[in-house]
Design a protein around this nucleic acid. Structure first.
Lengths: 340, 340
DNA sequence: CTGAAAGCGCTTACAG
DNA sequence: CTGAAAGCGCTTACAG
């Protein structure tokens, strides 16, 4: 029977209905459902029975209004066009959903002021928690996060600052490890080719520099930094440019796999022998990298683990507990294939 | 000054604050802000001035509780691993955000019962509107959507059923057009290779069948249907299988670009001449397809337009207006490159 | 065209 | 350990 048009009643089963069915007060139902302890176990059972019988589900809006926050978590990432973040979000969502939290994705498009704007909107919706990419934010963004006292976990990078929670790995170490691999293969004129130039890319640049400087092999003319968005097409273009302007280069380390994939396709087109003439390496081990010809050497970055671990950490924080470790380093793995 | 610990006051600027500043009643503020007409223009101005002066922003939770629904839109898509849906979501979000709506992404993983579950959760949050992929839902899903009376726009496919709102294109016609292109190129033994086997893929199969049957060229043994998730690796594998088991095949129509990209890479690896020995075509024109060697012939599907048009249509519906057209067909384009 | 009252469905802070 | 009251910040339905 549809509710009368003139009434505001929603016809919804409410907490009050459960309370009268269980013959307890609404507050007790509320407490029992949220697992607050200090509720007699027989009452909890009566409440649960009534909930099952009536098919009661709490109203998130009412809950959000009455309590300090909603039952959703905001996740701020640069863009979904980078498959890295798609994997991250899938993992976050998979961990949070069973705990009853919705995931609200905010896209910053690698822009600090857009991030600030998105965060502002997200905060209006009073999220129960926040997952934020990296540490490079505008002062206003930092201030918003601090004021809001919404639990927050940073991902992709790690920090040892007190009070900061993070899950990631050392971008710098990972880049250094890959560079070391190229050196071990006998490469000496190793170019670094990057696009987008986000903070993590710049950390990879540092790792590459560290490793080469240490052996006196660092040559700033082999740094190819392009602020344009990363893409296969750009990788192809950079590959051609680098080889034509620096013919002696014997390896190129691309800061992301899509660039490297584009480079490998350009090599096929131009009939440039990889790795014989020039080795090509990427970063992130994205879809298709193992299918390239030759298969791409890269760094596998465990974004699935990062997402899951960050979500678990956030779950602790949202329950008012301090996680065992404020920082989780999930590591990385150099995946050697045929392109180096 | 932080709010007293003992008070429930949030310190937030409320509609009541705006009302007293503007010297009108709270209801008038509410009406003015929602653009409800029938509010004197001088009052509207006073309200707007007060809002600006106080920096007031409405509380979504309170709004959601008091009214029938929240200020967010649920978007149900199969998976973010298919770049198609990433583009769709970006476009939806770009259109909805300026109108004050948040986008809540629900992932169904190509599973009808998971879709049902996700929809159930979404509905609990009382979305203002819904964007749903396709028309193939479980009976329970259909019932939930019908009962909820949340405005809903279906995307990717179109329907002419009364009362149904949709934005998409004819998957079947698009596949037929691509098949025609292959026939025009002189191909006669054209295989159809598909993965995932979602409804749209099956419609493409029909389009391929239509076109070949019409000329007496349809051969069911050239249908390669694999329910596994679509990927470059699978495309490579299917390519090898098809050529070894059906050596006379002179073209392969892959139902999605990632499969076709994998096939092209396999061809490079196996030194099979494309398109000389066998033509390869894909579908969707995903990132990288123009970079392949040879560049991939495919069908460009305007998911950006679909997302934007669907969001605009939903905006109308959420304002209680009926859109000019209940169905928008955005069309498609066969993009001929070098692989056919 | 405008408003006073009631209510949306929960949880908080207090009291016992 | 449990509850009656008040309140979160809006909008609805009614009346004028």
């Amino acid at each position: 029977m549809p509710p009368s048009k003139r009434s505001r009643a929603t016809g919804r089963i409410t907490l009050a209905d459960v309370a009268s069915a269980a013959r307890v007060s609404p507050i007790t139902v509320s407490r029992a459902l949220r697992g607050e302890r200090g509720v007699a176990s027989d009452l909890v059972e009566r409440v649960q029975a009534a909930v099952r019988k009536l098919g009661y589900v709490p109203d998130p809006a009412a809950r959000a209004l009455a309590s300090a926050h909603g039952s959703h978590v905001g996740v701020l990432v640069p863009a979904l066009s980078n498959a890295l973040f798609v994997d991250l979000i899938e993992a976050v969502q998979r961990t949070l959903r069973p705990a009853g939290y919705q995931t609200l994705v905010g896209l910053t498009h690698y822009d600090k002021s857009e991030e600030e704007q998105v965060l502002r909107e997200q905060l209006l919706h009073r999220p129960a928690g926040l997952v934020v990419t990296g540490f490079d934010h505008s002062p206003a963004t930092r201030a918003l996060m601090a004021q809001s006292d919404v639990p927050c976990v940073h991902v992709m990078e790690t920090s040892s600052d007190p009070g900061v929670h993070s899950v990631g790995f050392s971008q710098r170490d990972a880049a250094a490890a890959l560079t070391r691999h190229l050196l071990d293969r006998g490469r000496r004129r190793i170019a670094f080719a990057a696009a987008q130039l986000d903070p993590r890319t710049m950390q990879r640049l540092e790792g590459w520099r560290d490793e080469l400087s240490r052996r006196g092999l660092h040559d700033p003319r082999l740094e190819w930094m392009n602020p344009a968005p990363s893409s296969m097409a750009l990788g192809a273009q950079m590959f051609e440019q680098i080889l034509s302007q620096r013919p002696a280069v014997d390896a190129i380390f691309f800061c992301n796999d899509d660039l490297a994939q584009g480079a490998l396709l350009a090599a096929t087109r131009l009939r440039i022998a990889v790795p014989r003439q020039v080795a090509v390496a990427g970063f992130n081990d994205l879809t298709g990298s193992d299918q390239m010809v030759p298969a791409l050497t890269t760094v596998r970055t465990p974004r699935g683990e990062i997402g899951a671990a960050a979500a678990r950490m956030l779950l602790e924080l949202m329950q008012g507990r301090e996680p065992q470790q404020p920082t989780v380093d999930v590591g990385f793995e150099v995946v050697v294939r045929d392109s180096t």
